[in-house]
Nucleic acid binder design. Structure first.
Lengths: 329, 329
DNA sequence: GCGCCGTGTGTCAACGTCAACATATTCGAT
DNA sequence: ATCGAATATGTTGACGTTGACACACGGCGC
């Protein structure tokens, strides 16, 4: 900066003013300074800036490594929005499962140069890790609603699950079976509860849900059990991957999708349309969730008051994996 | 830090020595200082550290937003390894396609507080963006080999494509058709060339490859054309997603996989095993690529000499989407 | 003609840390 | 007893930036 100042024949302070467009600077002077910056390839030193201002213009994101497709997309959206707003994104990975690693991540985090944090971890797993979120640092939670201590943003899981369940019922199926996500996931829990409530609101008893873990393989295992029961004609899987496994299990047993059994997924994976048959699914919008998370965090950073954040809606995308049951035809 | 020093009855410098475990510190003193740090919840200020040392202990990753599954996994691995090595990860997203955005990302980058950069963008796209990589900053390229200006790490694309092609030929297929990735992708190009060379080394002429764009939808379009030709019995798709689309196209036309047509993918998507039929594919190891990229960058940072980095190998995973052709049975 | 305000620019200090140097103490070897 | 090396701690200044303050100039209203 000193070099630029000398080159332009001004003081360092004036250079600072030009860079930050703050205060009064004469037009001619500004030009000279900008010229000098250009010639010398000057870049402000962010460390010094941060030291002086106490702000880093950086957002930390804590996320499990090897995360789901949806979370990856959310991260992506967070990165894009943060960058648009002039913030850098610092990624703090947590290696799944190992408890002390989780705590360690938060400790590491405190040393990191961030102004605020977005946590993209399902809340039950958070609880399990007995992690205390450092205070003094604004935090936004995604995909969970751990108390009201911090604002959170999320997909409207309940609405999506209702759409899926009602679609199958409206086609004429007598009931809908459910392959749920892992017990410790809030998303899974909310999808399952919404499915149950939707059935009950139509006066139907919900069959015992099968337990999966989000993986296609677990969906396959659930499908192996479902295909034993000939009364099963409609299955709502808590995500697309498990739906893929369910489809495989039925197909292997010679049952056709959708003429014997209808299957609905949840997520809206881009390739779901190209599966065979194309999968009916609940389209999520992780990119909206991510952008919203950044916006909410920035409001927190500016000390804005905390409003209730709306959930992000979903849409049902009807494809060829669902149809009316034989009996209704 | 001053507070800690006062609390422990020592100077700031001694606190610094305790924190960095550098120089001589008496055992009793160290304990007092550590105690004080604990009590006051002291965390060193990374901005001041960076300002003083000129090192940020941070690595920047430049990546297209909405990236492929493989790149996402690579990012993940980079994050984990960087964190293990005590480095923070700053993610700099580039919104696909918009040229000036790409250049902008690099400009932004220069202001960012990173010691080195890992670029996870296919090289042809890099070229297209006419981006100049800022010098003075160590750079490692992933998934590309743009000249020898910077070290690069990558999957051994050629080996993987050879495995896939040979597998189909060894089953008895007369030739192998190819659904290639986008023209501007190095990976796609190398897979295609290796497929061609493998065929030619067996004295076979390579049929005209079909052009896809990695998406399942483009695979489906390619499949629509392939299914018109009854001589097609074996297809090697340049990634799993396109393979999914190819399978769908044949299935829709009443052709069975694998009894009528064998299909091989490339990537090793975790769900490929649960597709119907389970997909034969070339298993990549993006996590190894990511970790390797960090290791190579750290060597660069330490001014180490640049060796040739080995490519990361792949394995063929044979599943049920491939079988001998009817004629050979 | 006087003071005041708006504009344009410079000086200084401080942000938190750590390398370099200075100082003090202990201990073993001569 | 003396010296030097090893150990232990304190003092100072600088990293690059910017907020606070000071200063200088011209124009305006009275």
């Amino acid at each position: 900066m000193e070099d630029v100042a000398r080159e332009a024949g001004v003081s360092g302070q004036t250079v600072s003013r030009v860079v930050n467009a703050r205060g009064y600077v004469g037009a001619a002077t500004r030009e000279r300074v900008e010229d000098a910056m250009q010639r010398l390839g000057y870049r402000p030193n962010s460390a010094a800036r941060a030291l002086r201002s106490g702000r880093f213009r950086a957002i930390g994101v804590i996320m499990f490594s090897f995360s789901s497709y949806g979370n990856q997309r959310t991260l992506d959206a967070i990165a894009v929005r943060a960058s648009q707003m002039g913030y850098a994104l610092t990624l703090i990975p947590v290696e799944s499962s190992a408890r002390d690693t989780v705590a360690g991540a938060f400790r590491r985090l405190e040393e990191h140069a961030v102004d605020g944090i977005i946590i993209v971890i399902e809340a039950h797993q958070l609880d399990e890790a007995e992690v205390e979120i450092p205070d003094g640092l604004p935090v936004v939670l995604v995909d969970s609603n751990r108390g009201a201590a911090h604002p959170f943003v999320d997909t409207d899981q309940a609405q999506g699950a209702r759409l899926a369940t009602e679609h199958l019922l409206d086609l004429g199926h007598e009931t809908v079976w459910h392959v749920a996500g892992p017990a410790k996931s809030y998303s899974a829990e909310r999808r399952r509860e919404s499915w149950r409530v939707t059935l009950e609101s139509r006066g139907l008893a919900a069959p015992e849900p099968l337990q999966g873990d989000w993986s296609a393989e677990s969906g396959y295992r659930a499908g192996l059990r479902l295909r034993e029961d000939d009364s099963v004609t409609a299955v709502f899987a808590a995500n697309d991957q498990m739906a893929i496994g369910v489809v495989r299990a039925f197909r292997e047993a010679g049952k056709d999708i959708p003429s014997d059994v209808s299957v609905v997924g949840f997520d809206g994976l881009p390739d779901a349309a190209q599966l065979w048959p194309p999968l009916t699914t609940v389209q999520q919008h992780p990119e909206r969730v991510g952008a919203l998370a950044v916006d909410v965090l920035l409001v927190e950073l500016d000390g804005g008051e905390r409003g209730q954040t709306p959930l992000v809606g979903t849409e049902l995308v009807v494809r060829e994996s669902t149809a009316a049951p034989r009996t209704a035809r």
